[in-house]
């Protein structure tokens, strides 16, 4: 598989009105879903989700080993799948990588702005769902650059479908800890009691209730990094 550069895209600071829908089946999602004004600082953002190749390089260079290894890189990244997004990583694993590359995970608000932009687009590519522009309801993960035509207003690719992406922070409502996931994935479970799969709109996040690392890692869950810019 031919590798490619995961270049960084500049996002100029701006203010926008954050408004997000969530679907938690039952239960609540104790954050302010807007509409509210948020300020986005100057950012650089990875064009693609972090790939197996990038994460393997990180491991090679740092010898990173999580304290709890349950399901860590369970898919066993190898050269054949180097261009696929890295998955089976917890939020801690994602943060460790991001720190190493001098970045961090995007906040939930930043992620939405990167995907929707100042025009508040419903999908990265526009306002109408187009399953041919993303890995939606597929059988497996695909290369992060497989759907370049589905890029967002700023040029970021693979923001909807393929794999869910971690956002920054563990939210704590006093009784529960949870993180917010973005973008949806290729996997679409068959029943309405399952987590709603497939590609997801820019204005959608899913509440992942945090437990041990084995439960926090999944075959459909990866990340991309952002970098504070001047």
């Amino acid at each position: 598989m031919k590798s490619f550069e995961n270049k960084k895209i500049f996002i100029a600071s701006n203010e926008y009105t954050y408004r997000v829908e969530h679907l938690t089946l039952e239960g609540t999602c104790s954050i302010d879903h807007g509409p509210r004004n948020v300020k986005i600082k100057n950012l650089l953002v990875d064009k693609y989700p972090v790939t197996n190749q990038q994460y393997s390089f990180f491991l090679k260079k740092t010898g990173y080993q999580p304290r709890d290894t349950q399901r860590f890189l369970e898919h066993k990244p190898n050269k054949k799948i180097f261009n696929l997004p890295v998955v089976f990583v917890s939020q801690n694993d994602a943060i460790a990588y991001a720190k190493w590359v001098g970045g961090r995970l995007p906040t939930d608000e930043e992620w939405q702005y990167i995907a929707a932009g100042p025009k508040y687009l419903d999908w990265p590519w526009g306002n109408k769902f187009n399953p041919s522009l993303c890995n939606h309801d597929g059988n497996k993960l695909e290369s992060v650059n497989a759907y370049r035509k589905g890029e967002s207003w700023c040029g970021c690719v693979d923001m909807s479908g393929n794999c869910w992406e971690w956002t920054a922070g563990i939210h704590d409502d006093g009784n529960h800890q949870f993180a917010l996931l973005r973008g949806g994935s290729y996997f679409y479970a068959h029943d309405h009691w399952h987590v709603g799969g497939g590609a997801r709109k820019n204005s959608y996040h899913w509440k992942l209730q945090i437990l041990n690392e084995g439960m926090n890692r999944a075959a459909t869950l990866g990340f991309r990094c952002v970098y504070d810019a001047k």
Binding site: T24, G196, A218
Partner: peptide, 18 residues
């Protein structure tokens, strides 16, 4: 409400507990 995030079935989720 965790089932369905990936293909793991209800029994596999026990394996992922501490």
């Amino acid at each position: 409400p965790r089932l369905g995030l990936d293909e793991s079935n209800q029994w596999q989720l026990y394996k992922y507990l501490p």
